[in-house]
Simulated scan of single mutants.
Amino acid sequence: MKTILTILIVVLGGLSTITAQNTPKFQFKSEVIDYGEIEKGANGLRVFEFTNSGTAPLVIENVYSSCGCTTPSWTKTAVAPGQSGKIEVKYNTTIVGPIRRTITIYSNADENPKAIKIKGKVLDPDEKS
């Protein structure tokens, strides 16, 4: 019984290693984009760039924001190993105040879901300091 259990553990461990070797993997230039302090109504578009550092095509199934004030769009085609893709994030800069949002990526990558973040602060030019 002990021998069968040992063989089973070795086989399953080997299969998980093989599977892990044939998976896509996100490698972002940066996982956090800092808007800094921007004025109300400024351009809220920012781009997360990534490379598939895995060994299989990376397919993004969906991308969600933690708030309706942030609209994501992304590379819709499979990203081959070694190739690059992007996730664009448009923040509604008519909302004054701090920016702290999480963008969640659902894909076939080894880390699923994957969270990336935006931060910063939208300033109201009409407010006096």
Results as ranks from 00 to 15, higher is better:
Met1Tyr: 06
Met1Trp: 11
Lys2Trp: 10
Ile4Gln: 11
Ile4Lys: 11
Ile4Leu: 15
Leu5Glu: 04
Leu5Met: 05
Ile7Cys: 02
Ile7Pro: 10
Leu8Trp: 04
Val10Trp: 04
Val11Asn: 15
Gly13Asn: 15
Gly13Ile: 11
Gly14Asn: 13
Ser16Ala: 13
Ser16Trp: 08
Ser16Pro: 10
Thr17Ala: 08
Ile18Ser: 11
Ile18Gly: 10
Ile18Gln: 07
Asn22Val: 15
Thr23Asp: 15
Pro24Trp: 08
Lys25Ser: 14
Lys25Tyr: 06
Phe26Gln: 04
Phe26Cys: 05
Lys29Asp: 12
Ser30Phe: 07
Ser30Lys: 02
Ser30His: 06
Ser30Asp: 00
Glu31Pro: 15
Ile33Thr: 02
Tyr35Gly: 11
Gly36Pro: 10
Gly36Ile: 05
Glu37Ser: 12
Glu37Ala: 11
Ile38Leu: 08
Glu39Ser: 09
Glu39Leu: 10
Glu39Met: 09
Glu39Asn: 12
Gly41Trp: 09
Gly41Cys: 07
Ala42Tyr: 13
Asn43His: 10
Asn43Trp: 08
Asn43Glu: 13
Val47Glu: 07
Phe48Trp: 02
Glu49Val: 08
Glu49Arg: 13
Phe50Gly: 02
Thr51Ile: 09
Asn52Met: 12
Asn52Arg: 11
Asn52Glu: 14
Ser53Cys: 10
Gly54Met: 10
Thr55Trp: 07
Thr55Pro: 06
Ala56Cys: 10
Ala56Ser: 07
Leu58Pro: 10
Asn62Ser: 09
Val63Gln: 00
Val63His: 01
Ser66Phe: 02
Ser66Cys: 00
Cys67Asp: 12
Gly68Asn: 15
Gly68Gln: 15
Thr71Arg: 09
Pro72Gln: 06
Pro72Lys: 03
Pro72Gly: 11
Ser73Trp: 08
Trp74His: 11
Trp74Tyr: 04
Trp74Ser: 13
Trp74Thr: 04
Thr75Asn: 14
Thr75Lys: 12
Lys76Ile: 03
Lys76Ser: 09
Lys76Leu: 02
Thr77Arg: 13
Thr77Ala: 15
Ala78Ser: 14
Ala78Phe: 07
Val79Leu: 08
Val79Cys: 06
Ala80Leu: 13
Pro81His: 01
Gly82Asp: 05
Ser84Thr: 12
Ser84Val: 04
Lys86Gly: 12
Glu88Trp: 00
Glu88Phe: 03
Val89Asn: 10
Val89Ala: 06
Val89His: 08
Lys90Tyr: 12
Tyr91Trp: 10
Tyr91Val: 01
Asn92Val: 01
Asn92Pro: 09
Thr93Met: 03
Thr93Gly: 01
Ile95Cys: 01
Gly97Leu: 05
Arg100Thr: 07
Arg100Val: 06
Thr102Cys: 01
Ile103Cys: 04
Thr104Lys: 00
Tyr106Glu: 01
Ser107Pro: 11
Asn108Phe: 00
Asn108Lys: 00
Asn108Glu: 04
Asn112Cys: 04
Asn112Lys: 00
Pro113Ala: 03
Pro113Gly: 00
Lys114Asn: 14
Lys114His: 06
Lys114Ile: 03
Ala115Leu: 14
Ile116Cys: 01
Ile118Ala: 00
Lys119Arg: 07
Lys119Cys: 05
Lys119Ile: 03
Gly120Pro: 07
Gly120Tyr: 05
Lys121Glu: 06
Lys121Thr: 10
Lys121His: 11
Asp124Pro: 02
Asp124Cys: 01
Pro125Lys: 02
Glu127Ala: 15
Lys128His: 08
Lys128Asn: 14
Ser129Tyr: 15
